[in-house]
């Protein structure tokens, strides 16, 4: 299988990550489209010893940063935000449960969100995340820790409103 075929095979995973990162389907697919276009252009720069998946995520990450998508204003934590994120009834498949998760993700700063999604959703190792994002592993771990603490506080709905300091 050629490198190009392998890239095509990874499109669903790129879409999943982009969707979780940006929320909207159109915006996410725009990002995937730009990523594929650049990846096909830069394929000669890819060295086989670098995992193709990691490389594609790094291409996507750079585009996300370049295009200022990562800096796009995220919603401010509203008054009573903790009530909006109060636990929903029902199992994990519950629609409300998903909406709470998506809203909570919107509140995460992009650098934390990227690390969390690459680890938890895309199941990259910490080393791979560090390479994809171009940051030290120690930074990966601290961002992961902060992302999880923030999300847990948001989703637990334990009555503690997340402070801006926590979500930034």
């Amino acid at each position: 299988m050629s490198d190009r075929d392998r890239i095509v095979e990874l499109i669903p995973r790129l879409r999943r990550y982009a969707r979780a990162l940006s929320g909207g389907r159109g915006e996410a697919d725009d990002l995937v489209q730009d990523t594929l276009a650049r990846a096909f252009d830069k394929l000669h720069l890819w060295r086989p010893e670098r995992d193709l998946r990691v490389w594609l995520f790094s291409v996507m990450h750079n585009l996300h940063v370049d295009q200022g998508r990562a800096r796009r204003a995220r919603p401010e934590v509203p008054m009573g935000g903790e009530a909006l994120l109060a636990p929903a009834s029902g199992g994990p498949g519950d629609v409300l449960e998903r909406q709470r998760l998506i809203r909570a993700l919107e509140w995460l700063p992009a650098p934390q969100k990227q690390v969390l999604l690459l680890v938890a959703l895309e199941q990259l190792s910490y080393d791979e995340v560090a390479r994809a994002l171009g940051i030290p592993v120690g930074t990966v771990m601290s961002r992961l820790s902060r992302a999880r603490a923030t999300l847990r506080a948001l989703l637990a709905g334990d009555g503690r409103a997340p402070t801006l300091e926590v979500v930034r």
Binding site: P12, R13, R15, R16, R19, A20, P92, G93, E97, R98, L101, I102, L116, L117, A120, L121, R148, L151, R152, L155
Partner: peptide, 14 residues
């Protein structure tokens, strides 16, 4: 649980 919720929410994209 957050990891499980992420998969539950976004795996359908695959």
């Amino acid at each position: 649980r957050i990891t499980a919720s992420l998969h539950d929410t976004f795996d359908e994209v695959l």
